[in-house]
Simulated scan of single mutants.
Amino acid sequence: MPEQLVLLLELLLEEAELSVSSLRTIKRTYDLQKQDAEVRHRWCELVVKHKYAQAYGDVEHFLIHDQAMGVYLYGELMVQEDSRQQALARHCLSLVQNEMDQSARRVVEEMVL
């Protein structure tokens, strides 16, 4: 159930460290890219928090296709002080800025630029 997956991912977000192997297993076991936006959002938070570079494509997909829920993720990408994550945020913004809601775009631009 999506609600159960959201709860699981929220609990995992409380963990200080997760191994690449654990993250890979979670993604594969629960087929996270095929879940609803709430589940995918939590997954993306895990990816960003643990700097799981192999799943940055999932974050990009989320930011492009779930723009309304993506504003928070832009902030998370920028506060990690990881140049690769910051570049990902800038790249995604450049792809969707003309399609974004104007107020959301302003908020994201303030974080990213």
Rank of each mutant, 00 (worst) to 15 (best):
Q86E: 06
V96E: 13
M1I: 06
M100I: 08
Q102S: 09
M111Q: 11
V39R: 09
A37S: 15
Q85R: 00
Q80T: 09
K51S: 10
L7M: 09
A55G: 07
Y72P: 10
L18W: 00
V48D: 04
A37H: 13
S103Q: 12
T29G: 02
R84K: 10
M100K: 11
E3N: 00
L73I: 01
D58E: 15
G57S: 14
V6M: 10
H91P: 00
Q4K: 02
Q102K: 14
Y30T: 03
T29Y: 05
Q33W: 14
G57L: 08
V112T: 01
G57T: 12
G75H: 12
Y72C: 11
Q54A: 10
L95D: 10
G75I: 07
I26F: 06
K49A: 08
R90F: 00
Q33E: 15
Y72Q: 10
E60K: 15
R42P: 13
Y72H: 14
L46K: 06
Q54V: 10
D66Y: 12
Q33M: 14
I64N: 10
G70M: 04
L93S: 06
E10G: 02
A16P: 04
V48N: 03
E109M: 00
L77P: 07
L113T: 08
H65G: 11
K34E: 15
Q85K: 00
Q67V: 00
R24W: 04
S83D: 14
K34N: 15
E14S: 05
L73C: 03
V39N: 12
R42V: 09
Q33S: 11
S83G: 13
Q35D: 04
K34D: 15
Q67M: 07
V108S: 01
E60N: 12
V48Y: 02
L88S: 01
A87M: 02
Y74R: 11
E15A: 07
Q80D: 05
A89W: 00
R105D: 07
R106G: 05
L93D: 04
L13I: 05
E109C: 02
E110M: 02
L13R: 02
I64F: 13
R106E: 05
D66L: 05
R90D: 01
C92K: 06
V79Y: 11
E109R: 01
G57D: 13
L32E: 11
L95E: 14
E99Y: 08
F62D: 05
Q35T: 08
H91T: 04
A89C: 03
D31P: 03
L5K: 07
V108H: 00
K27V: 05
D31M: 10
R24L: 03
Y30F: 13
P2R: 06
A104V: 01
M111D: 02
A89S: 07
G70V: 00
A87F: 00
L113N: 09
M100S: 09
R84G: 08
T29E: 13
P2V: 13
Y72N: 13
